[in-house]
Design a protein around this nucleic acid. Structure first.
Lengths: 338, 338
DNA sequence: TTGAAAGCGCTAACAT
DNA sequence: ATGTTAGCGCTTTCAA
């Protein structure tokens, strides 16, 4: 078998199999419309010629791209990169390729991606950035481009959506802390406008209310999701007349920051104070002490969202427009009973 | 301004501007070939019609896709996701889109992506997985598809390449340990076949040799880059007749594992033993103690590789085929002077 | 079940 | 500097 000079086209396959190009096309796209015998002949010819479909031609003809755009606020964020993997797997299984757009949290960039979508380069969009695309971008030929949002719910949007059941999970973690005997529980919030923060905080309050435990507003501090914010908060807690028994930070990075801050001040965790986080990031289990936290299946979130989008792009009916994946409390070494 | 029913095509713009489609095409692709006056008229018509180029049509016509495929062993790995960001930025700047293929370290998947490349879906390939693509995939029409490898060098390949100067950096770290007064220095290796491991280990040996310090083979252990491997290695070091003064782990995860293992055994770091890592992963600075390590600019690696690929795709001459980015030792709290 | 043929929207060679 | 026009390779209607 020697190397072909020119890339085989559908016509070459047709000639070799003794059929028309239409039959080759059908064999490849919808094999059951073709007689088995013909099909075999075509497949044989495909193998012999080494034919590979020219995607650009198909895309032009069908005006579809078999590609999906994922809009991320930050591709270098470990959280998103794990979600991405679930997306990538699922799309790949369904014959779609994944194009990523890292907006770097910059609205200007989001606008740039508008042309991308309008240019017909993608058949569907996955929004992970908690924000809608600029309006013209979301449309093409006056139609909405199939879109699914995930991770961060988009306020006021009715897009199909997939996320972790943040409120329920935060409630479960708080109940865990309560069960350990803690009553004087602090909560370290995220940025005020953040949707995740809002849900998790609500879950925290739910649990306290259900247990009849009064919430001490002094024990509720805020940060911006970073380790540094956690360290700063530790200082603030230390300045309080009395330290809480436990603190639930609404993400792992801040929980780690709290542990750092307390440890540096000679307050050992969990002996003097229990700390819990949320996310179960990669190094949570390796931290010293290993972090009690809420584990989310980030890959699953991506996979489910991608599957929904595929349905949408194919015009299938959606079983449900809103998926909330449950997350489980993982007890490790940063919390203990009073 | 009301919504157009049908998506405007190049002909609509041409009609509106009173020129031919060729002129519109030229105005958009190479504005300087068109008289300023004509150009302005065309641009005005573009704006008025809301015209957006149909990429599929252009791709078919020009047989280029303006897309680049990044082949990753694991998109959920924080290291790669940061490299990805540099890639994404740079490609975007040059008008290319980024398609990602997560091979999950699975050769079968790598093969699947062959059709992708042969199908003409991408103009260039970025290999981050330390492996060549299956041979037919790397060609199209008998020509090589422009390809750049990065991060992990591919043994025996002459592809243009970008990586961290691992050997030099490992040497610098070892010199740092020596300067701190350590003489009894252990080294925790990665998997035997790994290229990074090989280079870093060589750098370690370079430094010892240059300092005239004998390498004690007992102090050289191996692991598989994971935290668990580091913990296991700590146990093994503990079983030795004498503990080393310092251990250089060839990546951060193993360094963290060592710290965990020693801490759990009551050996405090850095009081009883100094530990150094390599990579400066996100949580290295937040670890307790904060990890002394080697910092690589992962974004830069991606950006440089992407820039090289763009040159290659455009047929420009490459200034250099091999870029080795220097990495710096970051001294934090897990090492101290004897 | 299969074939013939039109045409998706654009670019570039060639002509003016 | 600009216009005319022939395809790029495929899918899909329509006809057989």
């Amino acid at each position: 078998m020697h190397k072909p000079i020119r890339k085989p086209r559908i016509g070459d396959v047709a000639a070799r199999a003794g059929v028309s190009t239409a039959t080759v096309s059908r064999t490849l796209a919808s094999p059951d419309q073709v007689r088995p015998k013909t099909r075999d002949a075509v497949m044989k010819a495909v193998r012999e010629t080494g034919y590979v479909l020219n995607v650009a031609a198909r895309n032009l003809r069908t005006s579809r791209s078999h590609a999906v755009l994922a809009v991320l606020p930050d591709a270098s964020n470990i959280f998103f990169s794990q979600v991405l993997r679930g997306i990538s797997d699922t799309l790949h299984q369904h014959g779609y390729s994944l194009v990523i757009a890292d907006t770097a949290n910059d609205p200007a960039r989001e606008r740039e991606h508008a042309a991308f979508i309008q240019g017909g380069r993608v058949d569907g969009v996955l929004l992970l950035n908690g924000r809608l695309l600029p309006s013209p971008a979301a449309k093409r030929n006056g139609h909405r481009v199939p879109t699914v949002s995930l991770c961060e719910r988009i306020p006021g949007s009715r897009l199909p959506h997939v996320e972790t059941a943040n409120r329920e999970a935060a409630r479960a973690m708080t109940e865990h802390l309560l069960k350990l005997g803690h009553r004087h529980i602090g909560y370290l919030r995220g940025p005020a406008a953040n949707v995740l923060e809002h849900d998790r905080h609500a879950g925290f309050c739910d649990a306290l209310a259900a247990a009849g435990v009064a919430l001490d507003p002094q024990l509720v501090l805020s940060g911006d999701f970073t380790i540094a914010a956690g360290e700063a908060a530790a200082k603030d807690y230390l300045a309080l007349p009395q330290l809480p028994d436990a603190i639930f930070a609404c993400n792992d990075a801040m929980a780690m920051g709290l542990i750092r801050g307390f440890t540096a001040a000679g307050i050992t965790v969990p002996d003097r104070i229990s700390i819990a986080g949320f996310d179960d990031i990669e190094f949570a289990a390796a931290y010293i002490p290993a972090l009690t936290t809420v584990h989310q299946s980030r890959g699953d979130i991506g996979a489910r969202a991608a599957a929904m989008l595929v349905d949408l792009m194919r015009g299938n009916k959606l079983a449900s427009r809103d998926i909330r994946l449950s997350a489980e409390v993982v007890m490790r070494d940063s919390t203990r009973a009073v």
